[in-house]
């Protein structure tokens, strides 16, 4: 049997880093208000901290965070007459969440995965791509801006295109999505 993990504060920081975005996306799909969603997600991490010795794997932790977030969102939208409190035994029941809500969790996880694939592009490729398609600079201008040779600019651009094509196969989607500023500017 796997021993329980003991989550220390640096691990909590890592868990926050890895999971908060998908949770926030999920919470926002339930409550629609930015601030409320942020508070609910934050509180789920506090709840995790309070039970930090009760988990034996990251999957369990993730399921807990989703269920805690789901319950808080439902409590918020349905007011207090059906209060849902956390039953630690109910963690394995993530999959038995009502389908409408469960689909939102699956969607959040799927988006997180695709997003993670997209931000894997090395910084140079991302930058060349952004300058080409968003700022619409010419190759010469990009060479000057990034102190690169034309060959290097071509290479980085075509590698970025290849990578994105592979992620989305033959969908043209990758181009539109790549233009999303947040994704480009704020990725780690």
């Amino acid at each position: 049997m796997a021993a329980n993990l003991y989550i220390d504060s640096s691990q909590l920081a890592v868990l926050f880093k890895n999971y908060h975005r998908a949770l926030l996306y999920f919470a926002r799909s339930m409550v629609h208000e930015q601030q409320i969603a942020e508070e609910i997600v934050s509180d789920s991490f506090v709840k995790l901290w309070q039970r930090r010795d009760a988990f034996d794997g990251t999957d369990k932790i993730k399921a807990f965070l989703y269920i805690a977030t789901k319950n808080a969102c439902l409590n918020y939208v349905q007011s207090a007459h059906v209060r849902r409190d956390m039953d630690p035994e109910a963690i394995h029941l993530l999959e038995s969440t009502e389908p409408e809500t469960y689909v939102r969790i699956v969607r959040a996880e799927l988006m997180q995965q695709i997003y993670a694939e997209m931000v894997k592009l090395p910084e140079k490729q991302r930058e060349v791509f952004r300058l080409t398609y968003i700022e619409e600079l010419t190759t010469d201008e990009i060479c000057e801006r990034l102190h690169m040779t034309p060959t290097a600019v071509f290479a980085n651009r075509s590698r970025a295109v290849d990578t994105l094509r592979r992620i989305f196969k033959d969908k043209e989607l990758w181009l539109c999505l790549f233009l999303l500023h947040e994704l480009l500017r704020n990725s780690p």
């Binding site: 926050f16 908060h20 926030l24 996306y25 926002r28 959040a108 988006m111 999303l180």
Partner: peptide, 20 residues
Amino acid sequence: ALQAFDAVYGTDQAASISRM
């Protein structure tokens, strides 16, 4: 769906993360 995921922090990502 991806646009919504992209816009998850509202207008200011850093502020949203530091509030949380």
